[in-house]
Design a binder for these strands. Structure first.
Ligand code: FES
Ligand code: FES
Lengths: 146, 146
DNA sequence: TGTATACTCTACTAACATAGTAGAGATTAT
DNA sequence: ATAATCTCTACTATGTTAGTAGAGTATACA
């Protein structure tokens, strides 16, 4: 697994939208400024996320994006997989990989499988509600220290 | 973490050399044929592995490569890190990553860190002796079934 | 109805990484 | 000597990433 900029941006964007869940939609421009993501790049990312059903949009004057489901119903893993592809550390765990012939007797494949599973166990379990709570807590702590 | 062809080839090569540990050096050509790796590519990989101290070489007529340490003293993690770089799923866990500003308060960083640790726990623990044993066992089982 | 605002869609591009290939050179056993 | 084998540097084709560009569509509101 490798988290690209696109993936990183997508996650940060969804977390931001999670923070506005239930309120008015948020404009790309606001997200772009707040999260420091190139506007035109973010446009594309949001379109992808919309097509996948993670977010929904509203056009026109008071338009913008909002989360399509409750933050508790979106996991980190879903988003990562959608944007950055399968979790496995090598293609042979997920699909064809021309370096692998003896798939049956290969001792490495088993390891890569274990690695994939242990990653999944982490990211498929944490939702954006969890992350939201942690953010709030982090900010509170931060304010207290000042 | 992403295992590239180069990394995959390196691991398979070292495992092969582990199987010949203590015996005569193995020629690149033999490895190349047996493991189905492009010869000139394998040359480069073996030079890298040599410079890193994983293997040693002998030139001339009966030359070839052999493992520089006991199979039990080389872990999967060492080789993977050397060939394919750091384990973390995102650069910010290992080094500078321009998408990350608020490193202190970022809720994702903690997750990526967990992911990295859980990968490390697997690959830093398994040695090529372990893999060798498993290969032998796999082959025995295979023969038995025939 | 006009217009500003905001999302939609397709195409293009620069930079980098990957997976090799090519070829000349150095060492060693016989 | 010479054949076999490792050594080293440079080159290249392909794909991926991280954007940019620009024209088009929908909506609120005066
Ligand atoms: S690494 Fe894919 S089967 Fe061995
Ligand atoms: S993802 Fe790097 S600090 Fe948040």
């Amino acid at each position: 697994m490798k988290i690209t900029y696109k993936g990183d941006y997508a996650l940060k964007t969804i977390l931001d939208l999670a923070g506005h869940f239930g309120s008015a939609p948020v404009a790309i421009n606001d997200l772009s400024k707040r999260l420091d993501i190139p506007t035109k790049f973010l446009e594309q990312i949001l379109l992808d996320l919309k097509r996948a059903g993670f977010v929904e949009s509203r056009r026109g004057k008071i338009g913008g994006y909002s989360l399509a489901k409750e933050p508790a119903k979106i996991t980190l893993g879903e988003v990562v997989r959608f944007i950055d592809g399968p979790i496995g550390p090598i293609a042979c765990v997920d699909k064809q990989y021309s370096g692998c012939h003896d798939v049956e007797s290969c001792v490495f494949r088993n390891i890569w499988s274990q690695v994939g599973n242990s990653i999944s166990k982490i990211i498929d379990q944490v939702t954006f509600e969890d992350l939201l709570k942690r953010t709030n807590k982090a900010n509170k702590t931060f304010n207290y220290q000042i």
